[in-house]
Design a protein around this nucleic acid. Structure first.
Length: 815
DNA sequence: AGCACGCCGACT
DNA sequence: GTCGGCGTGCTC
């Protein structure tokens, strides 16, 4: 840190045009407060914007420089490694550095500058009834309105304001408001001692309550929380006011950190003894952490093998060495019970981070991490950005979960961020799962990452019986309903016994596929092996591949068996609920899907109601797969394995296998014997069969060959572009042009495959038409520059056309 | 991104 | 003649 005459600032504007450092002079008085990572307020054109410093220099490479207006932090919120991480995120996921920094910092961190206006002595002469008169009136009536507010309400006032400011009629000054405020609480102290205390009591005379409060505070002899005093003595602020005014009691504001969980942990729990397999996994992780070299492991442990205990002890060992640990869990698993388990083991050393915290709570948890008050963070995806000084261990539990990919910019994959930070900090990354993502398992297989296997169940619990019902037989026997006779009987039996039932509708998609109900045939693309999707446009029934764009006419006779039971498929939870009510009269059903769980806390509420046995049946999508630990549930039904098997996504088989395995592994963990019924028109499908047998290895062997055959990850990486526009022709035109540009850039390259323009699986969303172009390549580094320049050009053109072009590097799902 | 400037058509 | 439409270009 040689000199600080000039600062290189990235301005908080999410536009590629300004995503580069701008130079600002650092006023003498600010020199010792600016560092790399410090946020500042800078003039930018006619505006004032927040920005953050990425470099300091003796000279600027441009002649005209403005000066920094204000330094927004005493401590830089971004450590140098986080500044570096932000740059990497922008390069890897093709987004602006402003977007990356926003992802790194808690949302409440953003400061906003507004402009205050002040009329200077003589008001200007205005024509009555004119715009000027109206503005003048507003300025005089409500002098607290900011310039930005006024312009937002009346855009035409802008030029007048500018003119008046130039003429000196108006004076502008800016004020900065930090996003999240520090929370303060009031403490009270008795301000009178000894004799003056006695005389104060006397002076209060008949004010009994006031005397009581004063005496209480005098006895305490130290500042007491106001809230505690009031509730203890059953007093109100009205009692307090005169005491403060007379100077007997002193008020004091203290900053506090909000505690979103407030779990009383009492005495900390001790680690549990480890089984030999757990010990072996633990030893290897602990050794890697101690080595301070970046290393990644897959911890492949079956459900019930005790992964969490390994995590807890590995974290303990990391913390013992004076380094910090991050533990990621899927958002939906981050329940109070889960947090409690950590708090009971580590007490106050744990911070929690997830999206349901309020902005203020997030801000405070973040500050506790930044200040070094905690050494462990448990959180959802974004907790991977925890601003620790020296990370020793990062754990991603259920690493295969789709929720570890962020769906807006930067569209990062938590696993990749963890590995990058691992290299920065010399930290160990542990990816844990019972059903690892195929890529992860493949890397472990190839020796690129370490493999730790835990194949035994700690408590030797029994697996529930899994029955796969062939729905084709049901049809043959004349049962046209969505419930097989086995499932129907199973439900009836439970209802009679007063036991509970969970029904899954593992429908991830929206797209409808085409299936023959007689033989289970599913129409697929010949090139991609992806199920074709049903479309009806202008009375024409079509099947299209959402991957490559191939289209054919909807068959009315099954190409396989010649039968006429070819139907398009796709059922919502609502329809199942109706059907349930029709078939089982008087049954209480709790339905859980995006519609019924949108409210805050409604997810937990519904599960609690089910736990309280307010309903016999819980019906939902995979979001209920995590909540399977209900002692009274003895039947789990999967309405149709096919609905997740035939979504147009090359990961469909993997996702189905994972879901079914999870269901089978978790149902019936309690005293009552559990049963799982899986309905399918394709009961012989390998994903269904291997899930039934709980055989990950054989599923992996099979699926990896499929991936190799059609050249999909892990044998390549995918980047998806989506052109979006209200105008279908424009949307298509941009996608086509993008395709052409990419073809030019990569023509003849063996390591690159271009999947041409095709309608997105969500082909029309919010009235906008979406087309996809997908690029497959071996190594991102070898295509990054070309992708960047083509993307920038077309993104601009898409914008001119009134739409936009989005990019998803290392796309996990193509929508 | 968001703002200013500048060049065109349609109005009091 | 002027107001306001949006295309273009710049921001240390």
């Amino acid at each position: 840190m040689s000199s600080k005459r000039f600062a290189e600032v990235i301005v908080e504007v999410k536009s590629s045009g300004v995503d580069r450092p701008f130079h600002y002079e650092v006023p003498e008085a600010m020199r010792d407060r600016v560092h790399i990572g410090t946020r500042v307020l800078v003039p930018f054109g006619p505006r004032r914007l927040e920005g953050y410093i990425v470099g300091l220099a003796e000279a600027a490479d441009v002649t005209k420089t403005k000066a920094i207006l204000e330094v927004l932090d005493d401590e830089p919120p971004l450590t140098p490694d986080l500044v570096e991480l932000a740059s990497w995120l922008s390069e890897r996921y093709l987004c602006t550095r402003a977007a990356s920094v926003q992802a790194l910092l808690p949302s409440g961190m953003r400061a906003k500058a507004s402009t205050k206006l002040q009329l200077v002595d003589e008001p200007p002469a205005v024509t009555p009834g004119s715009l000027e008169a109206e503005l003048l009136h507003t300025l005089q009536e409500s002098p607290n309105r900011t310039k930005e507010q006024l312009i937002a309400e009346h855009p035409r006032w802008r030029s007048i304001l500018r003119e008046w400011t130039a003429k000196g009629i108006l004076k502008e000054s800016y004020q900065v408001k930090q996003g999240a405020q520090m929370k303060t609480v009031v403490y009270l102290t008795c301000a009178v001692q000894g004799e003056s205390f006695q005389s104060a009591l006397a002076e209060l005379g008949r004010a009994k309550k006031q005397k009581e409060v004063l005496a209480y505070l005098f006895d305490q002899g130290e500042p007491v929380l106001m809230k505690a005093v009031l509730s203890e003595l059953n007093a109100s602020t009205a009692t307090l006011k005169p005491l403060v005014e007379k100077g007997y009691v002193q008020k004091e504001l203290r900053e506090v950190l909000r505690d979103p969980y407030g779990i009383e942990h009492g005495r900390l729990e001790q680690p549990l003894p480890l089984t030999p397999l757990q010990r072996s996994a633990y030893d290897q992780i602990a050794a890697a952490v101690a080595s301070e070299k970046p290393e990644t492991f897959l911890l492949h442990g079956v459900t019930g093998s005790g992964k969490t205990e390994v995590y807890l002890q590995a974290i303990a060992s990391c913390v013992q060495q004076g380094r910090q640990a991050i533990m990621l869990v899927p958002e939906i698993s981050l329940t109070p019970q889960m947090v409690e388990r950590f708090k009971k083991r580590f007490g106050d050393a744990v911070a929690v981070m997830h999206s349901r915290l309020s902005a203020g709570e997030k801000f405070d948890e973040w500050r506790r991490i930044r200040q070094g008050d905690v050494t462990i963070v448990v959180g959802a995806r974004s907790a991977i950005f925890a601003p620790f000084r020296s990370i020793g261990l990062m754990i991603i539990d259920e690493e295969h979960e789709a929720s570890y990919k962020q769906d807006d910019h930067p569209k990062y994959l938590a696993r990749e961020v963890a590995m990058y930070r691992g290299r920065q900090h010399g930290a160990t990354v542990v990816l844990g799962s019972a059903t690892p993502a195929l890529e992860t398992r493949w890397w472990a297989h190839q020796g690129q990452i370490g493999l730790l296997e835990m194949s035994d169940r700690v408590l030797g619990q029994n697996l529930p019986k899994v029955r796969v019902v062939d729905m084709r037989n049901e049809l043959q026997e004349g049962n046209r309903s969505m419930f097989s006779s086995s499932l129907k009987q199973g439900i009836e039996k439970r209802l009679e016994k007063g036991e509970q039932i969970i029904l899954f509708l593992n429908r991830r998609g929206f797209a409808t596929f085409v299936l023959c109900r007689s033989c289970g045939y599913v129409a697929r693309c010949r090139e991609c092996e992806i199920p074709l999707t049903y479309h009806k446009a202008r009375g024409l029934e079509q099947l299209r591949c959402h991957y490559c764009g191939y289209a054919e006419r909807m068959p009315h006779v099954c190409p396989d068996c010649g039968g006429d039971h070819v139907r398009h498929f796709g059922t919502g939870t609502q329809r199942v609920e109706e059907e349930l009510n029709r078939v089982f009269t008087g049954v209480n059903v709790i339905r859980m899907d995006v519609d019924t769980t949108s409210g805050k806390g409604s997810h937990a509420d519904l599960l609690q109601r089910f736990r309280n046995r307010e309903a016999q049946i819980l019906l939902g999508t995979q979001m209920i797969a995590k909540g399977l630990d209900f002692p009274n549930v003895t039947l789990v039904g999967v309405i149709s394995a096919d609905t997740s098997l035939f979504v147009p996504d090359f990961r469909a088989a993997e996702r189905t296998f994972q879901l079914l395995t999870q269901v089978a592994g978790r149902a019936g963990r309690h005293q009552l014997p559990g049963e799982v019924i899986v309905q399918s028109y394709n009961p012989q499908h390998y994903a269904v069969q291997f899930a039934k047998q709980q055989d990950y290895d054989r599923f992996f062997q099979h699926e990896i060959r499929v991936r190799y055959g059609v050249h999909n990850p892990p044998f390549c990486e995918l980047t998806a572009f989506t052109s979006v526009n209200v105008n279908e022709d424009e949307s298509l035109r941009i996608a086509r042009k993008l395709e052409e540009r990419l073809r030019n850039a990569f023509g003849g390259r063996e390591d690159v495959t271009l999947l041409g323009t095709s309608p997105a699986p969500l082909s029309r969303l919010q009235g906008k038409y979406r087309f996809n172009v997908v690029l497959k390549y071996g190594r991102f580094k070898q295509v990054a520059e070309q992708i960047r320049s083509v993307y920038q050009e077309l993104a601009q053109e898409a914008q001119k056309a009134g739409g936009y072009l989005s990019i998803d590097v290392n796309a996990q799902m193509i929508l």
